[in-house]
Amino acid sequence: MAQFAFLYRGGEPHPQSPVLMQQRMEKWMAWFKDLTDKGHIKDRGVPLDRSGAVVTRGSKHNVTDGPYAEKDLVLGLTVVEARDLAHASELSLRCPIFEQGGCVEVRPILTL
């Protein structure tokens, strides 16, 4: 088994309605539970705030007021175990982020 990072990118902001927000959360929890039950979760990882800064030498851009578009924002990451990149990509397909207009970046974790 190899390890991969799922980077959750972009997606529309959350709806105003608490009911719809809870539904969205429950979809994620169900997806995580499925991956956990099948033994794919190596590290649940961390969620990331939408704000922050991108620092380059001599300058600093606040994330939320650009120039980095919302669609590029990394909003969290998880470490999963899968046979290969194709398998890991397949596992990501049912991630609820796709319903929110976002995407999952699947990256192999470097090992020896």
Binding site: H14, M21, M25, W28, F32, R44, V46, L75, G76
Partner: peptide, 11 residues
């Protein structure tokens, strides 16, 4: 609620 959603969905 947004924070709860983001945090709870993972943890």
């Amino acid at each position: 609620l947004c924070r709860a959603l983001e945090t709870w969905k993972i943890h």
